[in-house]
């Protein structure tokens, strides 16, 4: 590819110039045509390299180094640690490994719950709002607001609502409905998990709704007309036409929601501050703490690499499973 890039670079002004003057020799224009797509990709490629791929490689290398605060000026001078960082991270009998395992388990439970609920609410809203009714546009706008709000503004509002003495949640549950005996704490202790799931679902279901709404527009109307002609009711149409037609969209949507939720840092960080309570100690916050609070970057990097490996395996497995499922339904 380098060869082609350097070819492209030797004709820097070529792509922008309108074709005027005498026709160029055919060989030159063929070279230019071959190089043009690479030239167009160059900025995107350079940025991806600088911000994603190179740092990731560096991160993987760092995972094998004993990198602490004192080597921060020039990280390359840090001594090699071999597999030491990994050994500490997966030693589940020792405190560090046990904490990592617990955080991983919390994240898994959190992700399954949050993605499932977000998907359910998004699907319900999209399907119920498929046909026109009065106020649909207004309602759609209202549903999209949680998605449009900046994460810190929205989550800070939630943390206000979850305050024990001044918040809305305890006011409604304790003062007005009388469900709870004593007003509980929501942002520390066991309840923090429920609080985190609530905020995460609130933030992500509008995205599911948005994507599914777009997906619904690709279903041909004739299908519904034919079904109605055959006497299928609304519920049957939803079950037999709408939901199957959304399958391809759902496959991508669930994967994207999974990755975003599993890696979510912003929601717990703004909701709880730098140290999340144990029941809501998501993996990204956990790694952040192990790196920046304890200044042990090598072990933080090792944990990140393990996280990446896990995500790679899950994503690959998911893609394989859905591809096979699709082939079976098609064939």
């Amino acid at each position: 590819m380098n060869r082609v890039l350097s070819r492209a670079r030797s004709h820097p002004a070529a792509p922008g110039r309108p074709r005027t003057g005498p026709p160029r020799p055919p060989r030159l224009s063929r070279l230019r045509r071959a190089g043009l797509p690479y030239l167009l990709l160059l900025p995107a490629l350079a940025l991806e390299l600088l911000v994603h791929l190179v740092p990731m490689t560096v991160g993987v290398v760092m995972a094998f180094k004993g990198l602490t605060q004192q080597y921060l000026r020039d990280w390359t001078t840090a001594p090699w640690a071999g597999l030491g960082n990994f050994r500490v991270a997966v030693d589940f009998d020792a405190p560090v490994g046990a904490a990592l395992l617990r955080s991983f388990w919390v994240t898994c439970c959190f992700t399954v719950l949050a993605v499932g609920l977000a998907w359910l609410l998004g699907t319900a809203a999209a399907v119920l709002m498929q046909d026109r009714f009065r106020g649909r546009g207004l309602l759609r706008t209202a549903f999209l607001i949680p998605y449009a709000l900046p994460v810190y503004a929205a989550v800070i509002t939630w943390s206000f609502m979850f305050q024990r003495d001044t918040g809305l949640v305890n006011h409604v549950l304790h003062d007005q409905l009388g469900i709870l005996g004593t007003p509980p704490f929501w942002l520390i202790g066991d309840n923090s998990f429920a609080a985190l799931v609530t905020v995460s679902v609130w933030r992500s279901w509008p995205f599911a709704f948005l994507i599914l709404t777009a997906g619904l527009q690709n279903i041909p109307r004739e299908l519904y007309e034919a079904a109605a002609m055959d006497g299928a009711g609304v519920w049957q149409q939803i079950r037999r036409i709408t939901l199957p037609a959304l399958r391809p969209v759902n496959q991508v949507l669930v994967l994207v929601l999974f990755l975003w939720t599993f890696n979510d840092f912003n929601t717990p960080y703004v909701l709880f501050g730098k140290s999340a309570p144990e029941p809501a100690d998501l993996i990204s916050i956990h790694i952040y703490q192990s790196s920046f609070v304890t200044w042990n970057f090598g072990s933080g990097a090792a944990m990140s690499v393990l996280l990446l490996l896990f995500l790679l395996v899950v994503t690959a497995g998911y893609l394989l499973a859905t591809a096979r499922g699709r082939r079976e339904t098609d064939g």
């Binding site: 600088l50 994603h52 560096v58 991160g59 890696n263 990140s304």
Partner: peptide, 14 residues
């Protein structure tokens, strides 16, 4: 797919 936390510190160092 990459967790932001994985390349936060490397990017910072770079």
């Amino acid at each position: 797919m990459f967790p932001g936390i994985l390349f936060l510190l490397p990017l910072f160092l770079i």
